[in-house]
């Protein structure tokens, strides 16, 4: 599969997964929530307040850590193979400054 196809699919899947975890709190309720409480809260309430954001954090971390990194590596290889083209990531930024 070509890198840009992989990138498009990975972005689509990441977006859908993020939307899915947030919405699961709603859909569980719409289609019958199990009678389950977490920390004293009905499950759907807990999910919307805390579970969803935490799941979103974890999913984004997976996307960032594995998918983005591997695609960036493939792009770098493409750049190397075509040679002489500077890194587009550095537009407007000073090299080596990546922390607060």
């Amino acid at each position: 599969m070509q890198t840009h196809t992989k990138e498009a699919l990975a972005s689509l899947v990441a977006a859908l997964a993020l939307i899915g975890v947030i919405h699961s709190g709603i859909w569980f309720t719409m289609f019958g929530t199990p009678d389950l409480t977490v920390l004293g809260f009905p499950f759907h309430y807990f999910w919307l307040v805390a579970g969803g954001p935490v799941a979103m954090f974890v999913l984004y971390w997976v996307y960032y850590q594995y998918i983005t990194t591997s695609i960036m590596e493939e792009k770098e290889q493409l750049k190397t193979s075509t040679s002489g083209v500077g890194a587009a990531d550095d537009i407007g930024a000073k090299a080596g400054e990546d922390d607060d």
Partner: peptide, 14 residues
């Protein structure tokens, strides 16, 4: 309204 705001939360990652 929780659903409104959790949907909003999606916007920045998206």
């Amino acid at each position: 309204f929780l659903a409104v705001w959790t949907n909003f939360l999606l916007s920045i990652p998206l």
